[in-house]
């Protein structure tokens, strides 16, 4: 399954990238799986997505819970809790 991953704010800085195209192994099915999988790809991604950090995730421009299923060709974004307004 192919997806596009985006990072914002502090996560973008830690990950040292703002987006990446990823071909997922078949065992990666949920947002939580994806977070764990990406964290293992590089030390920078490991820092950005470290376990225990409060991280939000959006799929195709809508916030979803970490147990949401990944959709083929989705745009999935990881970011810290929002601080606008």
């Amino acid at each position: 399954m192919k997806i596009k991953v985006k990072f914002f704010a502090s996560l973008k800085e830690l990950a040292q990238t703002d987006s990446m195209d990823v071909e997922l192994p078949s065992k990666v099915l949920t947002m939580g799986d994806l977070r764990f999988y990406l964290a293992g790809l590089s030390p920078a991604l490991g820092l950005a997505l470290a376990p225990g950090k409060n991280i939000k995730v959006a799929q195709d421009l809508e916030m979803v819970p970490m147990d949401a299923s990944i959709i083929e060709n989705a745009e999935i974004a990881f970011f810290p809790p929002v601080t606008g307004g």
């Binding site: 502090s10 916030m63 810290p80 809790p81 929002v82 601080t83 307004g85």
Partner: peptide
């Protein structure tokens, strides 16, 4: 609208202070 904007609209603030720059915590 403001209450939901502050908790669900994807904006992030970074502050610049004499001690350096930092992302604002929610």
């Amino acid at each position: 609208i403001m209450d939901y904007l502050k908790t669900s609209a994807p904006f992030w603030k970074k502050e610049f202070t004499p001690q350096g720059e930092r992302w604002v915590d929610a």
